[in-house]
Design a protein around this nucleic acid. Structure first.
Lengths: 120, 120
DNA sequence: TTGACGCATTCCGATATAGGCATATGATGG
DNA sequence: CCATCATATGCCTATATCGGAATGCGTCAA
């Protein structure tokens, strides 16, 4: 029907580059919205919206500090992603080996040789 | 103006659960489209579309095998994701420390409310 | 060639995004 | 209470998604 909501999980939330940048900035510590917006060259409403998404999936937390609201990183939600992707670790190493055979097959295929005839 | 294209990068491509499932299945080796579709309980066109996206971002490769087209994993595109997310590793551990203060605050707050049973 | 199979690609509709802009809400200080 | 700063939310448009159904290829077997 449409793409899954950006707030449906961390995978969707971090699919947006600006949200990733926000998370990276927050590694440096808590920060108010305007600060983030300025540093990332986006408008304040934009920042607020992105932060809302990040908050809904639990990747950031807010803390009221007087007039300001300090957003802080809560990276625990990234762990499942790291683990899921990590499940492919041996494959992106293996890929080079596997591609070796692959490449050779392709070389042969390119020769257009029907049944035999190949060298090299 | 709209969300970034699913084909814009691996982050967006794997935001879709079904595509993640496809990738997982492909860890078991190359497979034809219909096979994947059946195993994942989706229609063949759906599978083809998802595979197209995965292919455009380079996460899978295709290889014609007679009538069939065998899709295979190319996990190299997942590596940048793993690294990016890995950049937060110390934070989701640290979170527990930082959360220590947090949890204590919560405990105090809870001391007035109902108690949760212990679990494990 | 015809037919059957495997797969890709259309067209359709519904949805919700990201961006820009205006404005509402909230808290602080006089 | 009022003005001000900090942030959130509402409204709007353009866009691209995912899902479904139908159909268009390309390949193989008689």
């Amino acid at each position: 029907m449409a793409r899954a909501a950006t707030t449906s999980d961390a995978f969707n939330a971090i699919a947006e580059p600006q949200r990733r940048e926000i998370l990276v900035l927050l590694r440096g510590g808590e920060r108010p919205v305007t600060d983030l917006a300025r540093d990332l060259g986006m408008t304040q409403p934009q920042a607020s919206k992105h932060l809302r998404v990040l908050r809904e999936v639990g990747l950031v937390q807010v803390r009221g500090a007087g007039k300001q609201r300090l957003y802080g990183l809560d990276a625990r939600g990234l762990r499942p992603i790291h683990e899921w992707v990590g499940g492919f670790e041996r494959f992106w190493n293996e890929s080079f080996d596997r591609l070796d055979e692959y490449v050779q097959e392709l070389k042969q295929a390119r020769q257009e040789g029907p049944q035999d005839g190949d060298d090299q």
